[in-house]
Protein backbone atom coordinates (compact mmCIF):
# COMPACT_ATOMS: atom_id res chain seq x y z
CA UNK A 1 0.00 0.00 0.00
CA UNK A 2 2.69 2.36 0.86
CA UNK A 3 4.50 1.23 -2.18
CA UNK A 4 3.43 4.32 -4.03
CA UNK A 5 3.89 6.72 -1.26
CA UNK A 6 3.10 10.09 -2.51
CA UNK A 7 6.03 12.43 -2.49
CA UNK A 8 5.54 15.67 -0.73
CA UNK A 9 4.73 18.19 -3.32
CA UNK A 10 6.40 21.56 -3.28
CA UNK A 11 7.72 24.05 -5.70
CA UNK A 12 10.74 22.62 -7.41
CA UNK A 13 13.81 24.79 -6.88
CA UNK A 14 14.84 26.77 -9.91
CA UNK A 15 18.14 25.52 -11.13
CA UNK A 16 20.80 28.16 -10.77
CA UNK A 17 23.43 26.10 -12.45
CA UNK A 18 23.47 28.28 -15.53
CA UNK A 19 23.70 31.48 -13.56
CA UNK A 20 27.50 31.55 -13.73
CA UNK A 21 27.28 31.21 -17.50
CA UNK A 22 25.01 34.20 -17.78
CA UNK A 23 27.15 36.25 -15.48
CA UNK A 24 30.29 35.26 -17.32
CA UNK A 25 28.74 36.31 -20.56
CA UNK A 26 28.00 39.74 -19.15
CA UNK A 27 31.45 39.84 -17.64
CA UNK A 28 33.13 39.18 -20.97
CA UNK A 29 31.00 41.80 -22.63
CA UNK A 30 32.07 44.43 -20.16
CA UNK A 31 35.68 43.30 -20.21
CA UNK A 32 35.83 43.68 -23.95
CA UNK A 33 34.00 46.99 -24.12
CA UNK A 34 35.83 48.57 -21.21
CA UNK A 35 38.09 51.48 -21.87
CA UNK A 36 40.11 52.05 -18.77
CA UNK A 37 40.50 55.62 -17.74
CA UNK A 38 44.15 56.25 -18.43
CA UNK A 39 44.61 59.52 -16.66
CA UNK A 40 43.50 60.65 -13.27
CA UNK A 41 41.82 63.96 -13.54
CA UNK A 42 43.35 66.54 -11.30
CA UNK A 43 40.69 69.02 -12.25
CA UNK A 44 36.93 68.82 -12.00
CA UNK A 45 35.65 66.48 -14.66
CA UNK A 46 34.86 68.84 -17.52
CA UNK A 47 31.20 69.14 -18.44
CA UNK A 48 31.53 68.88 -22.17
CA UNK A 49 29.35 71.07 -24.34
CA UNK A 50 26.98 69.24 -26.64
CA UNK A 51 26.87 69.51 -30.41
CA UNK A 52 25.20 67.89 -33.38
CA UNK A 53 27.95 68.02 -35.99
CA UNK A 54 30.20 65.54 -34.24
CA UNK A 55 32.77 63.32 -35.81
CA UNK A 56 34.13 60.24 -34.12
CA UNK A 57 37.80 60.32 -33.39
CA UNK A 58 39.45 57.34 -34.96
CA UNK A 59 42.75 55.77 -33.99
CA UNK A 60 42.77 56.43 -30.30
CA UNK A 61 46.53 56.12 -30.07
CA UNK A 62 46.98 59.11 -32.36
CA UNK A 63 44.92 61.38 -30.17
CA UNK A 64 46.49 63.51 -27.49
CA UNK A 65 44.09 65.02 -25.05
CA UNK A 66 44.24 68.35 -23.31
CA UNK A 67 41.85 68.86 -20.41
CA UNK A 68 40.64 72.29 -19.40
CA UNK A 69 38.48 72.89 -16.37
CA UNK A 70 38.13 74.32 -12.92
CA UNK A 71 40.24 73.26 -9.95
CA UNK A 72 38.84 70.49 -7.81
CA UNK A 73 38.50 72.39 -4.56
CA UNK A 74 37.35 75.52 -6.32
CA UNK A 75 40.01 77.59 -4.60
CA UNK A 76 41.85 78.63 -7.72
CA UNK A 77 39.92 80.97 -9.94
CA UNK A 78 40.17 80.63 -13.66
CA UNK A 79 40.82 77.67 -15.87
CA UNK A 80 43.38 74.98 -15.28
CA UNK A 81 44.99 72.93 -18.00
CA UNK A 82 45.87 69.32 -17.46
CA UNK A 83 48.34 67.44 -19.61
CA UNK A 84 48.95 63.78 -18.82
CA UNK A 85 48.71 63.59 -15.04
CA UNK A 86 49.78 67.06 -14.16
CA UNK A 87 48.31 70.50 -14.02
CA UNK A 88 50.28 72.51 -16.51
CA UNK A 89 50.62 75.95 -17.97
CA UNK A 90 49.92 76.97 -21.53
CA UNK A 91 53.64 77.09 -22.26
CA UNK A 92 53.90 73.37 -21.43
CA UNK A 93 51.57 72.43 -24.28
CA UNK A 94 54.46 72.55 -26.69
CA UNK A 95 56.62 70.00 -24.90
CA UNK A 96 53.55 67.85 -24.33
CA UNK A 97 52.85 67.63 -28.04
CA UNK A 98 56.53 67.01 -28.79
CA UNK A 99 56.60 64.12 -26.33
CA UNK A 100 53.40 62.72 -27.83
CA UNK A 101 54.95 62.95 -31.27
CA UNK A 102 58.04 61.13 -30.10
CA UNK A 103 55.89 58.10 -29.38
CA UNK A 104 54.92 57.72 -33.01
CA UNK A 105 56.75 57.22 -36.24
CA UNK A 106 57.30 60.17 -38.47
CA UNK A 107 54.67 59.41 -41.05
CA UNK A 108 52.01 59.06 -38.38
CA UNK A 109 52.65 62.52 -36.99
CA UNK A 110 50.66 64.16 -39.77
CA UNK A 111 47.55 62.29 -38.64
CA UNK A 112 47.84 63.14 -34.98
CA UNK A 113 44.92 65.01 -33.55
CA UNK A 114 44.70 67.08 -30.44
CA UNK A 115 41.44 66.70 -28.63
CA UNK A 116 40.47 69.56 -26.37
CA UNK A 117 38.23 68.43 -23.55
CA UNK A 118 37.15 71.65 -22.00
CA UNK A 119 34.40 72.50 -19.59
CA UNK A 120 31.65 74.53 -21.19
CA UNK A 121 32.14 77.18 -18.55
CA UNK A 122 35.80 77.74 -19.34
CA UNK A 123 36.72 80.84 -21.25
CA UNK A 124 37.56 81.13 -24.91
CA UNK A 125 40.77 82.98 -24.00
CA UNK A 126 42.33 79.87 -22.50
CA UNK A 127 41.35 77.82 -25.51
CA UNK A 128 42.76 80.45 -27.85
CA UNK A 129 46.07 80.41 -25.98
CA UNK A 130 46.25 76.65 -26.41
CA UNK A 131 45.37 76.94 -30.07
CA UNK A 132 48.08 79.55 -30.59
CA UNK A 133 50.62 77.20 -29.03
CA UNK A 134 49.45 74.36 -31.25
CA UNK A 135 49.73 76.55 -34.31
CA UNK A 136 53.29 77.47 -33.36
CA UNK A 137 54.38 73.86 -33.50
CA UNK A 138 52.25 72.94 -36.47
CA UNK A 139 49.84 70.61 -34.65
CA UNK A 140 46.94 71.76 -36.74
CA UNK A 141 44.35 69.03 -36.41
CA UNK A 142 42.18 69.68 -33.43
CA UNK A 143 38.87 68.43 -32.21
CA UNK A 144 36.65 70.22 -29.73
CA UNK A 145 35.45 67.30 -27.69
CA UNK A 146 31.69 67.35 -27.29
CA UNK A 147 28.88 65.08 -26.35
CA UNK A 148 26.00 64.53 -28.72
CA UNK A 149 22.98 66.72 -28.21
CA UNK A 150 21.35 70.02 -28.94
CA UNK A 151 23.48 73.11 -28.65
CA UNK A 152 20.94 75.39 -27.09
CA UNK A 153 21.64 74.36 -23.51
CA UNK A 154 25.38 74.96 -23.64
CA UNK A 155 24.93 78.33 -22.03
CA UNK A 156 23.02 78.69 -18.83
Amino acid sequence: MSKFKKKKKGLPAISTASLPDIVFMLLFFFMVSTVMRETDLKIQTPKLPSATEVKKLEHKSLVSTIYVGKSKDGKIKGDLIQLNDKIARVSDVRSFIYSERAKHSEDEVAFMTTSIKADKKSSVGTITDIKTELREINALKISYSTSKGEVFNNVE
Binding site: V54, L57, S147
Partner: peptide
Protein backbone atom coordinates in the same frame (compact mmCIF):
# COMPACT_ATOMS: atom_id res chain seq x y z
CA UNK B 1 35.36 51.07 -14.24
CA UNK B 2 33.74 51.07 -17.65
CA UNK B 3 33.44 54.33 -19.49
CA UNK B 4 31.24 53.84 -22.45
CA UNK B 5 31.94 57.21 -23.99
CA UNK B 6 33.39 57.30 -27.45
CA UNK B 7 35.59 60.22 -28.16
CA UNK B 8 33.80 62.49 -30.52
CA UNK B 9 33.92 66.14 -31.27
CA UNK B 10 33.87 68.94 -33.77
CA UNK B 11 36.93 68.66 -35.98
CA UNK B 12 38.65 71.79 -37.12
CA UNK B 13 41.91 72.47 -38.83
CA UNK B 14 43.92 75.39 -37.52
Amino acid sequence: TTTMDVDSGISRKL
